[in-house]
């Protein structure tokens, strides 16, 4: 086996961050399913710590056309922060011109730098839908609207595939509400 071609790194890196219990692993899986169905290659890694709740949590997606040379995140194109305390884990990793999405209540002091920060009422929208726990899915809707990385229809289809039936409606409402926070 001798691989000759030097392949240039194409694609982008996404991090969903917050605290344990916010469902970031699940929303990472939903987004990965959507991007994979678009024919992209997605490498997902998560913070893996003994703490399952309350500790800092992250779900990273490295999205490429073929298999990524390095599958772990090093320079983020898109970053979601759902808890102020999770901000520091991405220090020095946010790319120039990256899109950073934060919850306007849970992250009162968002990062500053050479990138665009969008503070949106993500958790508030989830509460208005009747369940704070869908903040993760509201955030996904907002993120794809800001980042333009996949269509709402593709993400909805992926969410429907992954979500158990009894939660499907709630998640679909949540993703649309998030999307409309940006695009309406």
């Amino acid at each position: 086996m001798n691989k000759k071609a030097t392949k240039k790194f194409r694609g982008f890196e996404i991090r969903l961050s917050g605290t344990g219990g916010q469902g970031l692993g699940l929303s990472g899986k939903m987004l990965a399913a959507a991007l994979t169905s678009d024919g992209l290659h997605v490498a997902q890694s998560q913070s893996y710590e003994p703490t399952s709740r309350g500790g800092m949590s992250r779900s990273d997606l490295v999205v490429t056309e073929g298999i990524a040379d390095y599958p772990l995140a090093t320079a983020l194109d898109y970053l979601l922060i759902l808890d102020q305390r999770a901000m520091s884990i991405s220090d020095g990793m946010i790319k120039k011109d990256a899109i950073v999405l934060v919850d306007e209540e849970l992250v009162p002091d968002p990062p500053t730098g050479d990138f665009k920060v969008h503070a949106l009422p993500l958790s508030k929208t989830a509460i208005s839908l009747g369940n704070l726990r869908v903040t993760n899915v509201v955030s996904l809707g907002a993120l794809i609207a800001l980042a333009n990385i996949c269509s709402l229809a593709t993400l909805e289809a992926a969410i429907e595939r992954i979500t158990p039936k009894k939660y499907a409606r709630m998640n679909l409402d949540a993703v649309r509400a998030g999307y409309e926070l940006v695009s309406s």
């Binding site: 899986k29 992209l40 290659h41 997605v42 997902q44 890694s45 599958p71 772990l72």
Partner: peptide
């Protein structure tokens, strides 16, 4: 290593 063991990939 753990990094490869826990990686989810296409």
């Amino acid at each position: 290593d753990e990094a490869i063991g826990h990686l989810v990939d296409t």
